[in-house]
Design a protein around this nucleic acid. Structure first.
Lengths: 91, 91, 91, 91
DNA sequence: GTGGTCTAGACCACA
DNA sequence: GTGGTCTAGACCACG
């Protein structure tokens, strides 16, 4: 019965006009990791939760996450979630 | 919540990124049957053993086995196991 | 860990104990197609909507849909949805 | 490589000869519930865990659980587990 | 102690 | 925002 899952009107960040939203989301998540909101080895919120929180499309969230993965800030375990820290060695 | 997947036995496959795991498992099992590792009329390892060997979830193993069953490479006897060969006639 | 399953919407089926849920869901969807509730060429509800309606896991809905696809009652367009009718020719 | 999952030699109960094992297991589980080891609304150990702990066959554990279900001491949620307490109303 | 069904999530590829 | 793949468990039916 819910019209939409997005929580319109309670986004936590005010968007800047000079950068893409995905850059700003990546910056925000990086800041939270540095601040210890998301701790090393712990999972980030799921993609869906981030979509809800930021009020953007999934593709936007995924672009931000891809940036953090590329720089080694987080890593993915398929079927489980995204985790804070560099990817584990698989020797 | 576990970040890194336990290496129960020793993973025998290096996963390709361009195909689903279940396809690769089906291919591997088919190859073993052709090579005579699993012989006609003999049982395959149990689903849980394959789970351990390949380091995947049971659903993934079952999807691979379903493919082999569909193509007539193996057949199932409920409560007993999966066997190499076409399904026996039940006339 | 939840002991009682949430009643997301309102479960429309009283489950029989003598058949798997996925069979009963497939039967129900087939009946709706025959009755014209879902019309040929139109999309079915999304998998997640069916999850809500029937109060089951997505895997269970997908197993029911796989049966209908196998028998040619519906077909899938990747990224779009499931549609009523036999798969379109792609010659 | 493990020969067996059962923990032979560290069973927690000494079997009586005058009653079936499943009766003794049911009695033991009932005692633990009364003692608050397993609390109302919480899950019991899984069937596999009980099989390991008591060193018996699955069927034996299941017979004990069936007794507790029948008397309303526990209830099952399919795919989730067994829980302490009477079955929830599904109005 | 096998295969069969099911749960409740997750991320991925695509449109 | 869909369908596709995957995880990590659970209990069930049967032998």
């Amino acid at each position: 019965m819910r019209a939409s899952r997005a929580a319109y009107g309670r986004e936590v960040i005010k968007w800047r006009l000079d950068q893409p939203k995905w850059v700003q989301i990546a910056t925000e998540l990086r800041a939270r990791i540095v601040a210890g909101v998301y701790k090393r080895g712990n999972p980030l919120p799921s993609e869906r939760q981030l979509v809800d929180e930021f009020g953007v499309a999934r593709a936007t969230v995924r672009k931000a996450l891809a940036k953090l993965i590329e720089e080694g800030t987080i890593y993915t375990v398929f079927g489980i979630g995204n985790f804070v820290g560099p990817p584990p060695e698989d020797d």
